[in-house]
Design a protein around this nucleic acid. Structure first.
Lengths: 234, 234
DNA sequence: ACCGATTGTGACAATATTGTGACGGAACTT
DNA sequence: AAGTTCCGTCACAATATTGTCACAATCGGT
């Protein structure tokens, strides 16, 4: 009898690294624990494969010939089809800067080389669990909040509340972020498509409107001054 | 059959000493227990090799021709790529001064000659274990302190404490440094982006504000006169 | 014990950031 | 066409954060 946790529809991982031995090592290990693994050895290839295969997760080395990990993530996040694919970033020792530590680059997690295969699979499982829960189901429920992605409806304490489409997008992002701070720039990019991040106050205004509609729960949208907003359900 | 946890991409050590026999002894021993070892016999060479190889740890003799161990560490800590590489300092009997004892020089540990190979590998393992864990997880817990990088929340004895973003950055750096002294210049560069390190007292002020918020635990932020600050949790 | 350098401290002013209400235009409905 | 909804901007208010300064306290060295 199989452990129910491993009894999952096979999940596909894309592993991207330019060092062949690491690629081999990682993929054999991941296959051994039940994943389907495809590989790529540079950024361009990675993007192509990602587009074609729609992997459930990408393991991405930061240092790549041609297009580095940052660039790959950036393009990934700009494509609506691939935006949701979680990324686990691999970094060499010296590359660990604050940017990475803060996960400001858009990766979902990162791992410093050298790492043990066990650690890698643990991380992958954690991300997949989190994101399958959060992202793939059509409705997302959290405490008193509930969002139905398909119908674009929002419920607070079971009661439906009308949101405009922008409000909905914004609240959805905040909810999906699950207590992580979402930077202003990020929200502006995701909801409005603003890439320049210049002066606009529309985010503030919409947050205000959302808070109004949340009533007693207005404080669930917390502002992190100088950074962005964070949603903490209750 | 190998233990899966030891099945990791090989870790590289850089051993620096000007005495050839010690170099040989140490490296053969370290290779025997599974490390990749590269060597250098003076400070200049050490820095070059470190830059090129990005070793996972440097074993550094204090007494070196040309540039001594202190100088090497100092330069190391100034380079953003190499800043995080842990250093194990080797010292001869008489050289153990207060500076070394307090590890105020930026080393992660030190060992007095003569030492047994076994002791050396134990120390190395300890340092590597410590430093690989500190940065790789999204939340960092240490005694009564806990920092969640994603949500930018800080907890003391389980209770959440509000920090401004600057305070958060500062505390995070101190916590991540894990008992190592962080030089003023370094903190100013990392948190504020100041490169000139001229006269500003804002670091002092922020440390004070942090201490206020830490209450009883204010003394965990220790000042090292003329050098910087050190965080030692309890 | 004294001196100079360094750090702690409290107050303050400047600045940066966000909240808020109102407004006008655009898009959509009726 | 009139009414409605939604959206982004603006001006202004309300806050929160930050850096500096003057002065006190402390430390290290002699």
């Amino acid at each position: 009898m199989r452990d129910p946790d491993t009894f999952e529809s096979q999940q596909t991982l894309l592993v991207v690294d330019d060092e062949q031995d690491i690629l081999d090592l990682v993929s054999t290990n991941l296959r051994r624990v039940g994943f389907t693994v495809v590989t790529a050895s540079d950024g361009i290839e990675a993007l192509e494969v990602a587009q074609k295969m729609k992997p459930d997760l990408i393991v991405l080395d930061l240092m790549l010939p041609g297009k580095d990990g940052f660039a790959v993530i950036k393009e990934l996040r700009q494509d609506s089809k691939m935006r949701r694919i979680p990324v686990l970033m691999l970094t060499a020792k010296g590359e660990v800067s604050d940017k990475i530590a803060g996960l400001e680059i858009g990766a979902d997690d990162y791992l410093t080389k050298p790492f043990s295969p066990r650690e890698l699979t643990l991380r992958i499982r954690a991300i997949l669990k989190r994101s399958s829960h959060v992202l793939s189901e059509s409705s997302l429920e959290k405490e008193n909040f509930r969002i139905e992605r398909d119908s674009m409806r929002f419920y607070l304490k079971g009661k439906q509340i009308d949101l405009t489409s922008t409000e909905f997008k914004l609240l959805r992002l905040l909810l999906e972020a699950d207590d992580r701070v979402q930077e202003r720039e990020h929200l502006l990019r995701e909801v409005w498509g603003y890439n320049d991040s210049t002066m606009t106050r529309t985010l503030d205004t919409h947050v205000k409107r959302l808070r109004e509609k949340l009533g007693d729960f207005a404080d669930c949208i917390q502002t992190v001054r100088g950074v962005g907003y964070r949603f903490s359900a209750r």
